[in-house]
Design a protein around this nucleic acid. Structure first.
Lengths: 203, 203
DNA sequence: ACCTGAACACCGTTCAAGT
DNA sequence: ACCTGAACACCGTTCAAGT
C-alpha cells in the first residue's frame, strides 16, 4: 500500500517491522499488518525473512549488533563499568519494544554479548579473573537486562502501582516509608542502588 | 469432556487453567482448550470469570495471596530477609508459568506485595526507615522477581546459552573465565551473589 | 528468483437464543 | 442464573500456482 518502488528485501522488511513495533508494541504487531504496511502479500515476507519467529530472531540479532558500539569512558575500571551498564540500560529502555521482542524469543540475554568482553577486560583491570569474574559479569548482566525488562513491563501496567499501593495506609509503622511506597517507583534510583551495591562488593 | 458432574464455578475453572498452564505453559493455553478440558462451552467461561485477561488477573491474585504464607525464620533481621527472599524465589521458580501469566498482564510486581510488610519490619529492626527503606525494599523486590522472570525465560531458550558461548574461544584473555562463561549459568549462585551484595550495602 | 491468492487450522470475544 | 451455538474479526503458516 505505502510503497511504490518494488525493492522489497529483508532489510526493508526488518525496518518496517521495527517501525510497526515502535508504534504498537508487540501486541500491535502481526505478519499480515506488516505486509499491508509494506504493500506486499504476507507470503512474500515468508520468502525473504521466514516466519514470525525467524523475523523476531533477526531483529534480536540486529539489536545485539547495535550494542557493540556502546560508549565506555571513565577514568577508573569501576567508572567504566558503571558507564557501560548505564549506557546499555538507556539503550534498552530506548528500544523497549525490541527488548520485548528478544524476550519473547527467550533471547534477552543475547543482548549482553557485545558488552561481555569489555566488561571482562575491566574486571581483569581490577584483578578479578576466573570464576569470580564470571560471577560478577553475570550479576551485572542480569541486573541490567532483567531490570530493563521489568521496568518496561511495569510502565505498561502503571495502574497496578497505584492499586497495590492502596494497601499502604498511613497508620502503618513508618509514615515516611508508606509515603514513599505509595508514589510510583523511581526506577533510575533503584537501578543505581543495586548497581553500586554490586560494584562495591567487587572491592 | 472430562467432567461428569456439572458443578462448574469460577474456582473449578481457575484450577483447570492452572493445570493447563502447568502442562503447556502460556503458549499452550487457550480459552477454547480450557473449555474443552472442563467439558463446557467456551462462552460459559466468559460468564464465570470473564475473558482471558480477567482470568489471568484472577490467577495472579491467587498466586499473590499464596505468597502471604512464606516462611521467615532466622536469628537476625539480615538472616530473616535472606530467608524470605530465597523462599519467595523458590516459590516463583516453582510456579514459573503463573509468574509468566502475571508478567503477561504486567503485574509481576504485584506478587511482592505480601512480602513487603514483613520486609519493612525487618528493615526497621536494622534501623532503616523512610526513603532509604523504600529504596532497599524495592531493590530486593526487583532482584527477586526480575531474576526469577529472567531465569524462567532463559531456561526455555537454553540453546542460546550454548550458541552465544561459542564466541568465547580459549585464546582469549582469561582461560578460566572463558571456561566458566561457556558453561550454562548457575542462577542460584548469581542470585546469591547479587542478594548478598544488596544486603551488605545495608550495613 | 520472487510474489501471489486460496486454504487450513487456529485464536478471543460478542450476542441472541435457549433452559 | 447459567449455558449454548453461531458468527465476527482476527491470527500464523503452507503450498500450489503464477511471472
Amino acid at each position: 500500500m505505502s510503497r511504490s518502488g518494488n525493492a522489497v528485501d529483508a532489510q526493508t522488511i526488518l525496518d518496517a517491522a521495527v517501525g510497526m513495533l515502535e508504534e504498537g508494541g508487540i501486541a500491535g504487531f502481526s505478519m499480515r499488518g506488516l505486509a499491508d504496511r509494506i504493500g506486499v502479500a504476507v507470503t512474500s515476507i515468508y520468502w525473504h525473512v521466514g516466519g514470525r519467529d525467524a523475523l523476531f530472531d533477526s531483529l534480536t540479532d540486529r539489536l545485539r549488533d547495535e550494542m557493540a558500539a556502546l560508549p565506555t569512558d571513565g577514568a577508573t575500571p569501576i567508572e567504566r563499568i558503571t558507564a557501560l551498564a548505564r549506557a546499555q540500560r538507556t539503550m534498552l529502555i530506548d528500544r523497549q519494544h525490541l527488548l520485548a521482542v528478544a524476550n519473547a524469543r527467550h533471547r534477552a540475554r543475547t543482548l549482553f554479548v557485545p558488552v561481555q568482553q569489555h566488561l571482562a577486560t575491566e574486571l581483569a583491570g581490577l584483578g578479578i579473573t576466573g570464576d569470580h569474574a564470571a560471577l560478577a559479569l553475570r550479576s551485572i548482566e542480569v541486573h541490567v537486562i532483567s531490570f530493563a525488562l521489568m521496568q518496561f513491563s511495569s510502565l505498561r501496567g502503571d495502574k497496578n502501582d497505584v492499586a497495590d499501593a492502596s494497601a499502604w495506609t498511613d497508620d502503618w509503622l513508618d509514615r515516611e516509608l508508606a509515603e514513599a511506597l505509595r508514589s510510583p517507583t523511581d526506577y533510575d534510583a533503584v537501578f543505581e542502588y543495586g548497581l553500586s551495591a554490586l560494584l562495591a562488593s567487587l572491592c
